[in-house]
Write a protein that binds this DNA or RNA. Structure first.
Lengths: 336, 336
DNA sequence: CAACTGTTGGCAACTTGTTGCCGTCGTGTT
DNA sequence: AACACGACGGCAACAAGTTGCCAACAGTTG
């Protein structure tokens, strides 16, 4: 009726339960012939490890958790795909949890999951540093698109990317840019704003940040309206979803893109190439970020407790996809 | 050092471990004052249940698994969102696993997860009936957008939806439609083709099915090319991703939509409204499907073993979003 | 042939939490 | 005052594995 245990296998194979256990975990502690016999009996009975019993003693669950701040954001697709690809090659299972842009939900989920997985990768976590460090003390943990001293992380090179965006806009004669910021507690939002400002300073154009926006299409309404209150000719939206929302709103309000306003996004999601006008956006090696993060995590679950002195910080390349939403700056667009 | 156990709590509180256990699980088996004392000691020590130890004995894990056939398909967003919403109101955790359109991966994942969750919801499973029944014997299980006699399921009303699509196309004067089918092992693909054919028969227009396509944008190339080999004036793609791929390919080949060819999709994903021309597509109460499936599952994890005689089959409504990709049939488009 | 070494497999203790069963204690009833 | 009963808490067995330690055995060496 219920699932067979090692005891069933042991009885059937005429050995002790401990021998069955060793046949699986410690193959060279049992003779090859015995081991083959046990494995064949186990196969015949359809034996499967009970993950709970195993985890109870060993503390290892052969699962790793991937926490994404919003699973409905297509940006994470490539991250997830890359992570899965890498996990598939190991004996681990990837469990996904969605924080839905809520730090509280993210916190609760991780806390609950902490005892059920061997480690975490956090994608663009919205949690404050203290919380992340708290979890890092419980399980190995790797950050994606977020940095925190002492913890391993893999990020896309947004600093360089922001420079490219600003250079691109400057080359079109724009004298100012507005950054439509992502969530307040998003590390990438901080990072992008800093990089944009620095790049602007360097070449002598104005930079302004507006708001904190939830990076979704509907937020584009508020973001676009706020941008129109300034007299900028170029906006950089925190991500493509927000940028697409901005494009829509601008169209509604009769502002033509890129003639009156240039718009840039981040992530190069699939829809960026579909909207009208097609969106200029910063892409990156997202799948590689996912894969590398899992790679680092698996290293850390094997050898435990290397003190977090010189944890690796991988920075993977980004590149600008220039499409139709950016163009030459208009002169004297004071009237909105 | 390591996490406190009930034994630590018991020692600290001056009671037996069993009393601590009962204080949590069976509150009226211990006196209120004792219970309060235990809970306060537990709080002070930061005690947390070890889910593995608990699961080992009770078999309950307070987690439910949601398996989606391809997490990068935006169609599942609403399903996931609805499911999460409903789960949040319970004490359960939702773990997502992605099958990536591979039945083998789906099978392995479910098999591995089977012992770690209290039940499953399968979204548009690609597994053969036998496998699903096998898993249904192990854990409570609810199907989304798939039907299987004896198992509870929640589906969108694609039958009615297909009728609406066909009526819509017929009202534009189309004399034939081609269905660009989804994966061979997709129940919805079968169901849609059957419904389309019946609807066409009823009103006397031609229906043809082409291929089995992986429902992604890149597959649209092959699908569009195949459609152009016929002399139809209207295609119904298995989902919006495929439809968008078809739109792209048609544009590449200079076929104008909807003048030369009408295109319809399924799911009403967010990009359907962005592409050019905007896509006519069948939407549905997807979030409600997710919520209802979880609801049914939670019912089944509480009361176990009601024999699967009259399991509920919920059918939630669908509706057609008419956009720019459908229009009057062209006359005599024999030349491709 | 005895002593030594290495391989192999079994026993039993251990992981944490749950639960059936039993003893004790206090209160109420007759 | 004796008895009965219910409430409460403890003991110990149990879930399904893992692992330290020991014993048995085979093979090698002196």
């Amino acid at each position: 009726m219920s699932a067979p245990t090692i005891y069933d296998v042991a009885r059937e194979a005429g050995v002790a339960a401990s021998t069955v256990s060793r046949a699986f975990n410690n193959p060279n502690r049992v003779r090859d012939s015995t081991r083959d016999h046990i494995l064949s009996v186990a196969g015949k009975l359809g034996y499967q490890h009970n993950p709970h019993a195993r985890a109870l003693l060993s503390g290892r669950t052969h699962a790793i958790g991937m926490v994404v701040s919003d699973i409905t954001n297509p940006h994470y697709f490539e991250l997830i795909r890359g992570a899965e690809q890498r996990v598939k090659a190991s004996k681990y299972t990837l469990v996904l949890v969605n924080a839905g842009e809520s730090p509280r939900i993210e916190y609760d989920h991780i806390r609950r999951l902490a005892q059920s997985v061997d480690g975490f990768v956090l994608a663009a976590s919205r949690l404050p540093d203290e919380n992340i460090l708290e979890f890092a003390g419980m399980r190995p943990l790797v950050l994606m698109n977020r940095e925190l001293p002492g913890l391993p992380s893999v990020i896309v090179d947004y600093a360089e990317g922001c420079r490219r965006i600003v250079d691109h806009l400057a080359s079109f004669g724009h004298q100012s840019v507005v950054y439509l910021a992502g969530p307040r507690n998003s590390w990438t939002a901080q990072q992008r704003w800093r990089s944009i400002r620095q790049a602007c300073e360097k070449i002598g154009i104005e930079a302004e940040r507006i708001g904190y926006f939830i990076p979704t299409v509907p937020s584009g309404v508020a973001a676009a309206d706020a941008a129109l209150h300034t007299d900028t000719t170029a906006v950089i939206a925190h991500n493509d979803l927000l940028a697409i929302g901005v494009l829509r709103r601008l169209a509604e309000r009769g502002v033509s893109v890129p003639a009156d306003m240039s718009v840039v996004g981040f992530d190069n999601i699939f829809a960026a190439d579909l909207c009208t006008p097609a969106l200029t956006t910063l892409g990156g090696a997202h799948a590689e970020v996912g894969g590398a993060a899992v790679e680092l995590l698996l290293d850390r679950t094997r050898v435990i407790g290397a003190p977090s002195d010189a944890e690796p910080h991988l920075i993977l390349p980004s590149w600008l996809h220039v499409r139709a939403s950016t163009g030459p700056a208009s002169r004297g667009n004071q009237s909105h």
